[in-house]
Design a protein around this nucleic acid. Sequence first.
DNA 1: GTTGCTATGCTTAGCTT
DNA 2: AAAGCTAAGCATAGCAA
Lengths: 212, 212
Amino acid sequence: MEGIKKTRGRQKIEMKLIKNEEDRSITFSKRKSGIFKKASEISTLCGAQVGVVIFSSSGKPLSYANPSIDSLANRFLNQLEEDDETHPLVEIHRQMRLEKLNKEYNQLKTDLEAVKEKGKELKRLAKERGEEKGWWEAPIDELGVEEVEELMESIEDFHLVLTNHLAERACSNKNGNKPLHGGAAGTSGQGNNNSNSPFVIDAKENDFDLFF
Amino acid sequence: MEGIKKTRGRQKIEMKLIKNEEDRSITFSKRKSGIFKKASEISTLCGAQVGVVIFSSSGKPLSYANPSIDSLANRFLNQLEEDDETHPLVEIHRQMRLEKLNKEYNQLKTDLEAVKEKGKELKRLAKERGEEKGWWEAPIDELGVEEVEELMESIEDFHLVLTNHLAERACSNKNGNKPLHGGAAGTSGQGNNNSNSPFVIDAKENDFDLFF
DNA sequence: GTTGCTATGCTTAGCTT
DNA sequence: AAAGCTAAGCATAGCAA
């Protein structure tokens, strides 16, 4: 009842890089959730397709996309809460299955995002070369060839990745067929570690987190 | 001073599609700005790379990406406000130049986004086929081949687009070389209209808006 | 390293212009 | 129909556990 306040509540902060590393990572985590939530909401309210990718300062890619992951996450949640009592074996099967699906999906998504990221890098590089001079100030022809060629290489690599995916699938028509639900989300350690490869953002933690 | 309230203030709304079309588009516009702002903020505060793409219900792609577009937009704004007095001819040259750059950039970006969009569509299709059954419930092999092949086609098309870009640039080493600044942002009507092409989202308004 | 709390700043639904 | 307003709902900075 007294005038003693437990906290100062939300405080205004300067819009610049948070220097304290811990604060920064907490803020990142909280705001990331906020953005994903907003993305989810505009998608629901307005029927818009939304894609958000956030690379943390450590290089970890986190993403939200409508409507797939959205509903997927909801399914996960519902399942986790509703049928907590299942046969252990089925449960294990589910988990393995989901882990594989999740991994596959993440790989595909990572590749896709990497292509996009490559495009951004193109601009970034062009910008950095001229100190403060942005790429749009440079002559058109000057910024063209090398970067576009680089991008094309990425695309070709991406194409290769997809080809492999296809091949793998074509050869493995022997997995279970029963539609299954929910389970744990995290997949870890994908092995694909080559810092110079166009599709590896950060070899050490190249995983996707599912939102929610 | 009296207790008469001018408005009811913000009201709670159900988290479902807004049926009234006008309300929906207003909400879309407002929340889109909100999301872009949040994206900008997490980028600044946490040094994170962020990419956001939102397709309005009419199919118009809007995007925010850190840091390129962000700073680019600021440059535009600054220029527009600061050197409003220049030689008309130079001004015209700038505008043409920027229009071309902007167009090029938008095209590249559109292509990039479209590839990503294709990936999302893949999931969407897989989801729709089984009524309420999400793609992750379907057997892995069932959802693989056709959609991935479709995606691969897109990639090949994209590759072609890039090849053309490259070729165009290689042949046109005759344009002006003077680094120039700011100007108007909007480009309109790109002509590239083929609803079944993998890279045309909405032929009628296939442009990008710059944020801010 | 997370999670929960609370007071406060920020966003935005419904109006008005 | 685009921009501005107001009040209420929401997000979140700084702590605490």
